[in-house]
Design a protein around this nucleic acid. Sequence first.
DNA 1: TATAGTTGTAATCAAAATGATTACAACTAT
DNA 2: ATAGTTGTAATCATTTTGATTACAACTATA
Lengths: 141, 141
Amino acid sequence: MKITSRFTVAVHTLLAIYVLGKEYKMTSDFIASSVNVNPVVIRRTLSSLKAAGMIDVKAGSGGALPAKDVNDITLYDIYMAVDCVEGDLFNFHENPNPKCPVGKNIHAVLDSHLSDAQMALENELKGVTLADLMEQLNLLI
Amino acid sequence: MKITSRFTVAVHTLLAIYVLGKEYKMTSDFIASSVNVNPVVIRRTLSSLKAAGMIDVKAGSGGALPAKDVNDITLYDIYMAVDCVEGDLFNFHENPNPKCPVGKNIHAVLDSHLSDAQMALENELKGVTLADLMEQLNLLI
DNA sequence: TATAGTTGTAATCAAAATGATTACAACTAT
DNA sequence: ATAGTTGTAATCATTTTGATTACAACTATA
């Protein structure tokens, strides 16, 4: 199974707000048409990003605004903000048989390696900031 | 979303076959009771592991047997054998709007970073062999 | 060679997660 | 007041997963 597109949607959303925010009013409808998903999906994304302190959104007046330094937002922060993975990335079969020497010890043998792999992925995400992405993007616009 | 437990089930299955295979006949029923899943789930796992050349299984007589050097099987090989992830680990929203400067370039900006993160995870899995796991396990049995 | 024990695989099924969508109350600037 | 938004609940269809049933095909051996 793959990691939910909520993540790339959230990155796209933040980039839009931080790059186009000075030029346009960033409503959920506007962002939705850039990302190409339903506006409600964007509103939910905005909720998460707001809860993480990355943007400000005001009900009523509308429009999302940057709320953090772009150097202080990493892909990992976004990934965490939208709950791509709750806790462990790898599912583990429930209740391996404790009466079997393998079943009894499978967690002891495997857990640390799975955790290492997950950390390797997350560390990579920690190494990329919104500033990095904006720099790349500005070269292309 | 998490990575399917097919992966940990497959690792468990291989460990059982390679560690207990000399002592017991490793039928799908036997393994299923160690892993604690339905025997058909194990048969499907065995199919995948057999296709990857890691075990031999004969229909009829029954019982799975080791078919590869334990130093030549990594967690990554197992992960690939059971198709935990087809291609990209991260889902990407379909059809970002090419008329928007962000939508038009989001893939150019994001793809390489996602790919790097996935590779970091997979490289970690490549660094662990079945031999490593068996060594750990034998200390605990 | 008949039989018991297996594997291989198709077909269903229920549960969970996802994203789409509708609906509407609540809010705010003008 | 009103028009335009956000926040959020409620549904829905789709997809994925793993469980399970069922049964044909296969193999060792008694």
